[in-house]
Design a protein around this nucleic acid. Structure first.
Lengths: 394, 394
DNA sequence: TCTCTTATTTTCCTCTGTCAATGAAAGAAG
DNA sequence: CTTCTTTCATTGACAGAGGAAAATAAGAGA
């Protein structure tokens, strides 16, 4: 969405410059020669593209200090490392849930500097927007202390989101339909705003700054209140033609399984969603647990019924991941989300079910876990803002 | 794979030229202005790129004859249509199955001109290669009659195929592992050879010449001996990092379902594979049917048990398609394959199951059926060869 | 100091695709 | 019948992106 007033622009007009910057951003300090190799460009092109980025302060050249002698080859001229100046700019990321909003202030390398969260009392777009504006305002005040500009704001919402248009098409949790959130938020915050689906935002963060860096094909599976999945295919996040993609939560794992709130039976969600696990533990143990912590405690205490519930959840998750792997053949699947608190309880089942259901070479896909605090969702939103900033016009 | 001797090269060095040619190839005769709009280029670029292609005979300019007055706007200079000269070159496509090989000779627009098939008696690479050489030889002889050169050969094999390397990594039906088929076949046929997975080849054919033309995201689901799926995401066919993708056949639809030859239970394949349907019809009706035709006849005769088998197959297919739609959000799913002979028996179930299991806007994905003769598999292989020829070095 | 090796920069140079101007070929208006 | 208007197509000048090769830089070792 166009910002309401002129904002500093990223000085990378050519595709090569964007590519070079993102290479440095994702792969830490690199020599120019390395950048050239990774990006498939000539050394000359790198030199030319890097100069304006250094002049603008987005990149810095480290002195030849051999920070890690072991990596430097003995021969030849010592290389100069180029890296992103993380402190050059700040970004705001906001994750909106049905009853709370989380905000973070990050640097250019998407490291969290400040985190804030508010309860959300009303869900009407206007009310939420006011909360977002207040949160952003607080973060902007914090940002003043850093003496560098805030260059963008990302907002993550679950549901169907049209990132290009900056509109929330449908959000069940907020009960929104076709809300032009980017435009509205840009108006109230005075920043360029990027709106994206929450799981996709997290996927972008992994792609640029996490375990997906440098991979052309990977998936992120989030386990928590819902089961989500973000996909990167051919190096690009999959959004789906209609804004829906990665809906793994309602893939039917077992038609005879427990009923799901979506009306069907045996959805992955019904096996492994937070609330569903709690309900299932309650049934299985007869103990009136009311939240994940309670269910978790019961299972950790060794209650066989509770453990069984987690085991079945793990099995369902593993099978869901295998489905993704069979369909897309990703290089890696990153398992993440708040639900990982219970990881020890279903890690084995996830792996076993995955291995059993993965077909042929799809089984060579690597499974990786990455615990996730709730702030990281907001960080994902910030990552989308950084992405928008860096490649403003394509 | 590099051809063993110099072959005519496609005169399109720049990305724009390739793009322009493929636009004309996929979208029939177009005016230059239309091409420019579709390809997002300037009219000048189109004029310049088209000239050498016309000179080389790959494109022709139709006279201003208003073949379809209704489409022509009343105002302005009449446009000249540019189209591909289908007869400018020929290509060979070969599909290898476990017991037969199918070959076609197609023109540049991938229309079948000649079709041939051989039984396959031995499956060792050497023996198969000899058959392929013989088949290609016959087709080359036929090609002589057309007076235009054969510019490439595509070979489609089921299993894991590394198209870039031209190698068959693993083919269960042929019991091959790491066979450098492209290189070998190039040697024996004297043509540039492209090797790809059979379902992906079919998907390429749809993408360039069929119902997927112009779509950036779609899927092809084939129903036949096996259940396959080819995916196009972001305008590119998905191959998977390890050469496996679209393995929908062994997605578990119902853990309590019938056993599958892969060792699990309730795979989509176990519900809807040809042989599995026949077996299930036999069980359900007690009639010793031995092939699809028999099973089909029984169902068409109204035998309730047989109909039920087809209905369950349709349900499983619909659920599999919904899984694809939920994960990738394609614009269209093309249902194809020999199994469509039974389409009337499970069309309703496919649609119902799809609608029930598709999540939110994913349900807006269009389902399209396209009956498929067996020669079309070979045509798919030819399409990959045309693709390789047209964008030889990107 | 000289040589060897690799990194980086500089200096052309090619080459692609755009821009703006111009020519063409209709039908419409007068 | 002439002149306008509109859209298609072509041309030539041009910007500017990225490559190749040569020049320069900076250490290690002889």
């Amino acid at each position: 969405m166009p910002p309401p007033f002129p904002v500093e622009a990223f000085p990378a007009r050519t595709p090569a410059a964007s590519q070079i910057f993102t290479t440095v951003l994702s792969h830490g300090p690199l020599t120019r020669a390395d950048v050239a190799r990774r990006a498939g460009l000539s050394a000359a092109a790198v030199t030319k593209a890097v100069r304006p980025l250094i002049e603008a302060g987005y990149l810095v050249e480290d002195a030849v200090e051999d920070a890690g002698t072991e990596t430097r080859p003995a021969l030849g001229r010592p290389a100069n490392l180029v890296r992103v100046d993380a402190g050059r700019a700040l970004f705001i990321g906001v994750k909106i849930t049905g009853d709370e909003i989380f905000g973070v202030l990050t640097d250019l390398c998407c490291r969290i500097r400040v985190a804030r969260n508010f309860p959300l009392t009303a869900r009407a777009p206007g009310a939420v927007l006011a909360s977002v504006a207040e949160l952003a305002g607080e973060l902007l005040t914090e940002a003043d202390g850093f003496g560098v500009p805030v260059l963008g704001c990302g907002i993550a919402v679950s549901g169907e989101v049209d990132r290009a248009e900056g509109a929330v098409r449908y959000s069940p949790f907020l009960d929104w339909r076709d809300v032009p959130l980017a435009e509205l938020a840009a108006m109230t915050t005075g920043l360029p705003v990027t709106v994206d689906n929450d799981v996709r935002a997290l996927t972008v963060a992994e792609q640029w700054f996490g375990a997906g860096a440098g991979l052309s094909d990977f998936a992120v599976v989030t386990v928590g209140a819902g089961i989500g999945c973000g996909l990167v295919v051919h190096g690009r996040v999959v959004s789906g033609v209609h804004g829906v993609a990665g809906e793994i939560g309602h893939v039917v794992v077992d038609p005879a399984g427990p009923p799901c709130h979506c009306g069907r039976r045996g959805c992955l969600q019904a096996f492994a969603g937070d609330a569903e696990i709690v309900a299932r533990v309650r049934e299985a143990t007869g103990t009136p647990v009311t939240d994940s912590a309670g269910a978790l405690a019961l299972a950790h205490a060794g209650h066989p019924g509770a453990r069984e519930v987690y085991a079945r959840a793990g099995e369902a998750i593993g099978r869901g991941i295998a489905t993704v792997a069979n369909l897309l053949g990703p290089e890696r699947v990153i398992i993440s989300g708040e639900g990982l608190a219970a990881y020890d309880l279903f890690a084995g089942q996830i792996r076993d079910a995955f291995t059993a259901a993965a077909f042929g070479s799809a089984a060579r896909c690597e499974l990786l876990t990455r615990p996730l605090s709730f702030d990281e969702w907001a960080r994902g939103a910030a990552a989308t803002a950084i992405g928008s900033f860096v490649r403003a016009d394509r």
